[in-house]
Nucleic acid binder design. Structure first.
Length: 410
RNA sequence: GGCGCCAUCGUCUAGUGGCCUAGGACACAGGGUUUUCAUCCCUGGAAUCGAGGGUUCGAAUCCCUCUGGCGUCACCA
């Protein structure tokens, strides 16, 4: 039975690294019809942040990374105490100023084979130090609780960030001290920012929740995060979560650290938006803008479908929809020549009482032809912006007077 | 600094001794379609495979050395 786990500490909102680790653990469990667990590692009471656990749950649930079992370390203090006592009895640990330290062997080597890249890693035991397993406040340290729980919860694959690789000899010696079997270790390369430093808030590294607020689709985020280090056979880059569950393999995970590329995430998100059915896109937009009265009205109005259809290929994120349908003017000023053209156009427009999409386009084509004015210029004069939704949609949103007003503006 | 990991276009990567004068995607540049813009389509530039030594008839692929980057050295995880 394959059992994996994501073991975050509730010291803040998990960033992309933790989320991607959760994804890989989830995928590996699914791929093998195993189980994926959530374990809250709240053994550092001082750094505990209120609400962090809730956001962890929210991220997992939004992304659809549902867990099969959940545990919280602070509920299990007696257990850690019991195992620490066992070590004390066996003289494998000792008291030190109120804390308990584990006696690391000082000779030989401790080694492991990492599932990522199949590499063999070894450490000289003489470089290792006795480390604290139980703090003076009665709480276990990460190094201890993590091992006890992974064993008790029968974790078969410990898939975690590469930053834990140097503490792995501690874990292995603990398993040895208890006479327990080792799990498979898989250390994922850390995700780097543009400056090639470990991704953090400094890089504007957003949590999955922030990406959601920025209008990213969970499918796109999942797809992008999976491809940060993992690459299945073939050239396909747009792969659904269910497909990933089918073909994910730890042996296809890279050994080098990837740099987070927002541009590619944007592209993938745009692809997902364009691949959505109109109804689905509209539903997502309605949910995204549920607290925005103006946009909601537009979406739910009689031309809602039309706007969604026109905006679909123009959005990279759901947030772009608002920019598309909102009255935003470009900074560009009209030249004297353009002002004259605008006045001419005003007169043309005023001739027609009934202005619908058809007649507007007809009028513009003729006007452009007889005055040799490009559509690009006319679009700017009419809308006050240099790019955006097609005129037809803008006419439906704002009406003829809006165009007239823009033509007369400087 | 000690220990450990890593090293192919700007970025994500394919590549496991000959199919590689290195392939794909993003980004970028140019062109076509189009109602601006976007989409879509086509084309292009972009890596002497970190450097230097080997091994081999033949190396991005195997070995060694160096260099660089990253990670880690807490009663944090």
């Amino acid at each position: 039975m394959i059992r994996t786990r994501i073991a975050p500490s509730p010291t803040g909102i998990p960033h992309s690294g933790t989320t991607r680790t959760a994804l890989f653990n989830y995928l590996w469990a699914k791929k093998n019809k195993g189980r994926f667990l959530l374990r809250i590692e709240d053994t550092d009471q001082a750094r505990k942040v209120e609400g962090a656990e809730k956001s962890i749950e929210e991220i997992l649930s939004w992304l659809g990374l549902s867990y099969d079992e959940k545990y919280t370390q602070s509920d299990r203090l007696d257990l850690y105490k019991k195992y620490a006592d066992q070590l004390l009895e066996k003289d494998l640990a000792y008291q030190d100023e109120g804390a308990i330290r584990f006696k690391m062997p000082k000779e030989g080597t401790t080694s492991l084979t990492d599932a990522i890249g199949g590499k063999h890693i070894s450490f000289e035991n003489k470089d290792q130090e006795d480390f604290i397993i139980l703090k003076s406040d009665g709480f276990p340290t990460y190094n201890f609780a993590n091992v006890i729980d992974d064993h008790l919860m029968e974790i078969s694959h410990v898939i975690r960030g590469e930053e834990f690789i140097s503490s792995t000899p501690k874990h292995i010696q603990l398993y040895n001290a208890f006479g327990w079997d080792l799990p498979v270790f898989a250390h994922l390369p850390v995700i780097l920012g543009n400056d090639k430093k470990k991704l953090s808030k400094r890089h504007g590294a957003a949590s999955a929740l922030e990406y959601r607020e920025q209008g990213y689709l969970k499918e796109a985020l999942l797809n992008y995060m999976a491809f940060l280090g993992w690459r299945p056979a073939g050239d396909e880059e747009i792969i659904s979560a269910s497909k990933m569950e089918e073909i994910f393999d730890l042996s296809d995970v890279n050994t080098a650290s990837p740099i987070f590329d927002l541009k590619k995430l944007e592209w993938i998100n745009g692809m997902y938006i364009r691949n959505l059915s109109l109804e689905n896109l509209k539903e997502q937009l309605i949910a995204f803008y549920e607290n925005d009265k103006d946009v909601s009205e537009l979406l739910n109005g009689k031309n809602g479908d039309m706007f969604v259809a026109a905006a679909q290929s123009r959005m990279k994120t759901l947030a772009d929809f608002k920019t598309l349908v909102t009255d935003v003017h470009s900074d560009r000023k009209k030249s004297t020549e353009e002002k004259e053209i605008a006045q001419k156009l005003v007169r043309e427009l005023e001739k027609t009482n009934e202005l619908n999409g058809e007649s507007l386009l007809e009028l513009i084509r003729n006007f452009g032809k007889t005055n040799s004015v490009s559509f690009k210029t006319i679009y700017f004069l009419l809308t006050g912006r240099e790019q955006g939704l097609p005129l037809l949609e803008l006419l439906k949103i704002y009406g003829k007077d809006y165009f007239l007003k823009n033509l007369q503006n400087s």
